[in-house]
Design a protein around this nucleic acid. Structure first.
Lengths: 219, 219
DNA sequence: TAGATTGTTAATCGATTAACAATC
DNA sequence: TAGATTGTTAATCGATTAACAATC
């Protein structure tokens, strides 16, 4: 008997972090014409132990066929369903500078069902101009627009001094997920999930491993 | 006796990932005029168990004073030294579009000693124009420039179809750290540390937790 | 000295992985 | 049936945390 979703079992964070990796290589394999993949193959492509992949997947059910492997098409669907990536999510982007434009242009988001449907900036010179198809609006319109469009996710891409204001306005709309690309610590109410993305942190810890492996040239 | 650096002890990855967090709040406290911080205080600000903070730090020596706490100024210096953030690192940026411009403008990098000192793009229309003080060069000049300037780190911010070429060119220069902002899997030689930064992955696993806590509105 | 907080030990907890029976 | 690969158990490994002696 196949248990599809035991519901109340707690899923370790590491598992959830690996699912998007599996999804990525599965989509890659599918576009390469493959229809089936073993945990060994997925392990090669993701650098993750095959036993761990199998174990991760069993948290959500048993999707494979013994002696055969996993059907790529159905596994892609299952993982998308698990992650909530099986339907469209609308995003409000705050900040229409270079970073905001890069995010709005970013095809990867669209491909996974994340649609930027509104852009805000507090610079009057930008308001009324376009990013792609979208008219840049004043941040005062944020709340009404979020409600009207059913936007679920906010993205902050403003200069540091404006980040907290953006976070406050987004939180006030009832939005529950905020991605912050500004390298500043912002405070949000407890019911809001905040994700800070700071390239400096990544550089810093990558740098550490470099200095360990061979010593950075210090000219 | 204080052991400054035991040298050959293997440091868990999690420790290295937390150091930049400690560094961030220490810098924040310092700019707020504080001179000393206890592990309990750092724990509040980072949401990390104080015992873990103390344990993390002892991997590198003993920096605190019992009954008092940690001297912020010296701890900042020690962590910067540990991470290799105590001196300047030069970056080569490949891709001069919106994303590349955002990275070049990004003050957070400069504040931590990461200087973008060269920008490349294979679009002839962009070559010769400026980003900040930097002239955009053709990617064919990458190797010579990296050598001449002592650049240690490459950053990829090009469209997906150009990402592998950028990775190959950067690897060929002898660079050992590459940060890839393009949502595409690139291959690099084993001696190169590659860091893929994909906002989609972050959205996907953040989304999972949202759907668990209360169920996403599916209108 | 009394109070505070570190550095460190030991216990707990959880995650990873090897191994293998089940089964396609 | 023979070969392959899953799902699952059990062992290992490592990371987190509580507790406390050391000591400022």
């Amino acid at each position: 008997m196949t248990v599809v979703n035991t519901g109340s079992e707690r899923i370790p964070e590491g598992v959830i972090e690996r699912l998007p990796l599996y999804l990525g290589v599965l989509i890659q394999l599918r576009s390469g014409g493959e229809s089936t993949a073993s945990s060994a193959r997925l392990g090669e492509l993701t650098d993750i132990n095959p036993a761990q992949i199998r174990r991760d997947l069993t948290h959500f059910g048993s999707f494979g066929k013994r002696g055969v492997g996993y059907d790529i098409a159905t596994l892609v669907e299952r993982i998308q369903r698990i992650l909530g990536a099986d339907h469209v999510h609308r995003l409000a982007l705050v900040g229409a500078g270079h970073l905001g434009s890069a995010i709005a242009d970013y095809n990867g988001l669209r491909q996974h069902g994340f649609l930027v449907t509104a852009v805000f900036d507090n610079d009057p010179a930008k308001q009324g101009t376009h990013i792609g198809d979208l008219v840049i609006q004043d941040v005062s319109e944020l709340e009404d627009t979020v409600t009207a469009q059913g936007i679920e996710i906010g993205v902050i891409a403003v200069p540091p001094h404006a980040a907290q204001d953006a976070a406050d306005r987004l939180s006030a709309t009832g939005i529950r997920i905020i991605l912050n690309y500004t390298p500043v610590i912002v405070r949000v109410p407890p019911q809001v999930t905040l994700h800070n993305t700071d390239p400096v942190h990544e550089l810093l810890h990558t740098l550490y491993y470099l200095s360990k492996t061979e010593g950075v040239a210090r000219t």
